[in-house]
Deep mutational scan, measured.
Amino acid sequence: MATGGRRGAAAAPLLVAVAALLLGAAGHLYPGEVCPGMDIRNNLTRLHELENCSVIEGHLQILLMFKTRPEDFRDLSFPKLIMITDYLLLFRVYGLESLKDLFPNLTVIRGSRLFFNYALVIFEMVHLKELGLYNLMNITRGSVRIEKNNELCYLATIDWSRILDSVEDNYIVLNKDDNEECGDICPGTAKGKTNCPATVINGQFVERCWTHSHCQKVCPTICKSHGCTAEGLCCHSECLGNCSQPDDPTKCVACRNFYLDGRCVETCPPPYYHFQDWRCVNFSFCQDLHHKCKNSRRQGCHQYVIHNNKCIPECPSGYTMNSSNLLCTPCLGPCPKVCHLLEGEKTIDSVTSAQELRGCTVINGSLIINIRGGNNLAAELEANLGLIEEISGYLKIRRSYALVSLSFFRKLRLIRGETLEIGNYSFYALDNQNLRQLWDWSKHNLTITQGKLFFHYNPKLCLSEIHKMEEVSGTKGRQERNDIALKTNGDQASCENELLKFSYIRTSFDKI
């Protein structure tokens, strides 16, 4: 039985969820670079991206490699990797027998973001014989899940209580170790020597080791999670996991709180800001991140802002960003909400898709409305799209047979046209069989910064309504002859009103 693990408890099935942008060198404390989270699957090609990484700022997932063999891993080693800020997950990587050479110096898994409450997941690794993470000293947050690894031993010899604050939620089941077939031998045991430290858990006094050649490092209890030197002297209180010299914040392997210019500090002093819960960055760093993602459509890219001495992905609820200094300031009234469309555009074809934009005031991208039916549609669209004030790209209304009016965009005031449909149009209306009105132009103002209007096959939309939009939106004169079809717009509506004058002759039985 794995020490510190839980057996036999019912657990939810383990679901495996399925960018080499360097964020800056980590400095003297770390020998390499800070790398983003990685999802490495199918083959070993991307694994080489770990070569210079000291910190993975995010998670590391290595999974679904069915053609790899043990010899493929023999020359692979990433000794610079010290810390993973989120979680480490391995799933069905064939041929991998140990992690001792792959990650010989991995010391800390912070667990800032977890995989279903777990910071370390080893699942269905069919050839893994031992973990071998002999320098792993601290899992700051989260638990361990090690399950269905039929060859995995050296679990009962690990004292997880020396690595985690609590072992109650560890789930370590259905491994070879369960069948008591392992016969784990710690260093020196074969020669009758006791080389590794022994600890007591559940009444068992057991030597602690990761492999037959690597003991588990056990520091004096007084050192807590700070770690200790090879001689057993406690590291500085700002260290986490390990250090090369005692009581020196510049000799830590990793930091308990924050890293700044080669030393570990309790908090980031001005003019620095907390970033990702582990390091200090200056304003320029946060500003660069903001600008890199301002026009990016890459998933996970955030326009970072500053709030409460932190550089964070977005302002919290009730705050909006001051564009001059990136500071989050309290909103006066309802907060603006910028919604970034991942692929640059979004099609609204149902109430469900409209709900995804609920509360958005600025759309960074283009909207395509293609709704053919739905219950209580006008009210639903207004509830979900009615706060949109600005669209950076274009607005396209296409084959939306259920629409009679666009009044559900009740606050839309600006279409920038930074991206144009077919390279020309910022407003595009095609084949809307029941569209009769755009907006009530006596109450609604709309500016279209650039781009043209396109109207074709809107049989109940009168040309007068379209011409009014040209005047109000500032697009009059931009359109070419064929942009607004004269014969297919309003051709099934009563669009022309003329005053009919009647004269009559009164007659009676005795007068003409």
Rank of each mutant, 00 (worst) to 15 (best):
L29Q: 04
E33I: 06
G37R: 06
N42T: 08
T45W: 13
H48N: 13
H48R: 12
C53Q: 00
E57H: 13
L60W: 00
L63S: 03
M65P: 02
M65E: 07
M83V: 05
M83I: 14
I84E: 00
Y87L: 01
L88C: 07
F91I: 01
F91H: 01
K100V: 13
L106Y: 00
I109E: 00
N117K: 03
E124C: 03
H127A: 12
L128P: 00
L128T: 03
K129L: 08
L131V: 15
Y134K: 01
N135R: 11
L136A: 01
M137W: 06
T140D: 11
R145T: 02
I146C: 05
K148D: 02
N150E: 12
T157M: 04
L164A: 13
D169V: 06
D177S: 04
D178R: 05
N179M: 05
G183I: 15
D184A: 13
D184V: 05
C186Y: 01
T189D: 09
T189C: 09
K191M: 13
A198D: 08
A198L: 08
T199D: 03
I201D: 04
G203R: 08
E207L: 09
E207Q: 09
R208E: 12
H214E: 08
H214N: 09
K217A: 09
H226D: 10
T229E: 05
S237F: 12
C239V: 02
G241W: 01
N242K: 06
Q245K: 12
D247S: 13
D248V: 06
T250C: 07
N257V: 02
F258P: 01
F258M: 05
G262S: 08
V265D: 03
T267Y: 15
C268Q: 00
P270W: 13
P270E: 10
Q276V: 13
W278H: 05
W278P: 01
S284V: 05
D288H: 03
N295A: 11
S296Y: 06
R297G: 12
R298M: 12
G300L: 08
H302W: 10
H307E: 09
H307V: 07
H307A: 08
K310S: 09
P313D: 09
Y319Q: 14
Y319H: 12
S323I: 05
L326C: 03
T329H: 15
P330F: 05
G333P: 10
P334K: 14
